[in-house]
């Protein structure tokens, strides 16, 4: 999460998008290569999703995004597919942890205010989303400071490398 401003197009999904939908177990168990996983992102519910997105685009979902298994391959596949951030009304807890730990920005806001194909500008420092094509601004629920320090390091790997262990 090093860049403070993110810009991209919104790809809308519904509620309860589970980790089996994000990346099927058919691939998860086979490989550790996140680029390979990324190619199959969401393919069981949105065929060709990977082809439809451009780097920096956003996944915009409803409640409980990432429910299901603890597979970290889910946020990894999203990150390596080039998605800039996931925006949802709420996240499942293990997905939330995993996203923070790997440095994938996740944002909680009322996503009913965002339409498919809207162009969004996200300022993480200021805590705001601008819907460029409709001149609308949405506020973001901020992270607790301890979590922000993991995100600012770029995930837990970088955090551990930087501090040699827990700093909090």
């Amino acid at each position: 999460m090093s860049e403070k401003i993110l810009k991209g197009k919104a790809h809308k999904l519904g509620d309860d998008i589970n980790t089996d939908y994000i990346i099927s177990g058919r691939y998860k168990f086979k490989t550790l290569d996140p680029n390979e996983l990324a190619r199959h992102l969401l393919e069981d519910i949105c065929p060709d999703f990977y082809q439809k997105i451009s780097p920096g685009d956003f996944i915009v979902a409803g409640e409980n995004f990432g429910c299901g298994s603890s597979r970290e391959q889910a946020p990894l596949a999203i990150k390596y597919a080039g998605i800039g951030a996931v925006i949802a009304k709420s996240f499942a807890r293990i997905f939330y942890r995993n996203a923070i730990n790997i440095g994938l920005p996740i944002i909680i806001t009322d996503t009913d205010e965002i339409n498919q194909d809207d162009t969004l500008l996200i300022d993480l420092k200021k805590g705001a989303i601008t819907v460029c094509n409709r001149e609308k601004t949405l506020s973001i629920t901020p992270f607790p400071s301890e979590i922000l320090s993991i995100i600012e390091a770029g995930g837990l790997v970088e955090y551990f490398k930087k501090y040699g262990g827990w700093r909090i």
Binding site: S70, I94, I102, L156, V157, G165
Partner: peptide, 18 residues
């Protein structure tokens, strides 16, 4: 409670979890 692989790596390294 269930956690992710990165969490588990941190537990192996430090014995602790957030």
């Amino acid at each position: 409670t269930g956690v992710g692989s990165t969490d588990l790596a941190a537990v192996m390294a430090s014995g602790k979890i957030w």
